[in-house]
């Protein structure tokens, strides 16, 4: 044991920073979150054990229900929209007919570079009820003004638009890298066999992209459940567009209920764990791991 450690001391030394940091800043906090979720604590006084009270509170908390519903909607809508848009844009970027490809590639990546918080402020202005451009366009087309950020009915839409606007470029790049890996011969062979463009897309491109698309699906899922910046900056009335993670933050650091906040954190952790188990199971079935 000691001999191996000595023989391989360099590689172990090289990887140990990660494991130390992981232990201190991720593993211990995660485990500790579960512990704090069973106490009542404002961060300063002594912790008071309350058993499952925080979880019982959660069952009757409409803000919690709202945040779960909002985050689930953000998740489902963004998975669909981001995947459709990124496959579409990547296919177009990969087309032989496209000129100035490098320009289009760079230009369509720029939203991802822009800070979500700053863009949140801008979208807040674009979606402003009276002065915003979005309502300007709607009224110019003969519609009526929509109270995007002041009604609980619409408040999720600007958040969703911003999230999709900013993340699509990233996934476009990933899908594009997948498209570039598909050998040109496949398409040539299919064309010789008389396959149409649509057929080639559904019979060759999509099946060969399935791994990449699955990766995108998992990443978008995790990102959506962690959504914070967008809904924080574009806050609607009450908890109309609050995300789960945002509710955890405000509960713990604005109202100083660290115990209840940790219980919300546990829900988040369990959801993220579930996602990873599902992804692991799916990968195993495909036989990739």
């Amino acid at each position: 044991m000691i001999k191996t450690l000595k023989k391989y001391r360099y590689p172990y030394l090289f990887i140990c920073p990660f494991f130390i940091l992981f232990l201190v800043f991720q593993l211990i906090p995660t485990v500790w979150t579960f512990r704090i979720s069973f106490v009542d604590w404002n961060g300063l006084k002594k912790m008071k054990p309350v058993g499952l009270a925080n979880y019982r509170l959660m069952m009757n908390d409409y803000m919690f229900k709202d945040s779960i519903r909002n985050t689930a909607i953000y998740w489902l809508v963004s998975v669909v929209l981001i995947m459709v848009f990124s496959v579409m844009i990547a296919t177009m970027l990969n087309s032989r007919l496209l000129r100035a490809r490098q320009f289009f590639k760079t230009a369509t990546f720029l939203p991802y570079v822009c800070a979500s918080v700053a863009m949140g402020l801008i979208f807040g202005m674009l979606f402003e009820e009276n002065a915003g451009l979005v309502n300007g366009i709607i009224t110019a087309l003969g519609g009526t003004r929509i109270p995007w950020l002041t009604s609980s009915r619409y408040a999720r839409i600007p958040v969703e638009v911003l999230f999709v606007w900013r993340l699509t470029p990233w996934f476009t790049q990933i899908v594009l890298s997948g498209l570039l890996n598909i050998p040109e011969e496949y398409y040539e062979a299919a064309t010789v066999d008389g396959a149409s463009t649509v057929q080639r897309f559904f019979r060759i491109t999509l099946p060969l992209l399935s791994n990449i698309l699955f990766f995108c699906f998992v990443t978008i899922t995790v990102d959506a459940w962690k959504l914070f910046n967008e809904s924080y900056v574009l806050a609607g009335p009450g908890s109309s567009n609050t995300s789960l993670f945002q509710l955890m933050y405000t509960t713990a650091f604005k109202t100083f209920k660290l115990g209840y906040g940790s219980a919300l954190g546990c829900v988040l952790i369990v959801i993220l764990l579930l996602i990873s188990f599902v992804q692991f199971a799916v990968r195993r079935r495909i036989g990739e791991v």
């Binding site: 800043f25 991720q26 211990i28 906090p29 995660t30 500790w32 979150t33 704090i36 995790v222 962690k226 914070f228 993670f245 955890m248 933050y249 713990a252 660290l258 906040g261 940790s262 954190g265 988040l268 952790i269 993220l272 764990l273 996602i275 990873s276 992804q279």
Partner: peptide, 10 residues
């Protein structure tokens, strides 16, 4: 898979 953000409170 489980991001550090979830353990933000501790």
């Amino acid at each position: 898979m489980v991001s550090a953000e979830a353990g933000a409170i501790p």
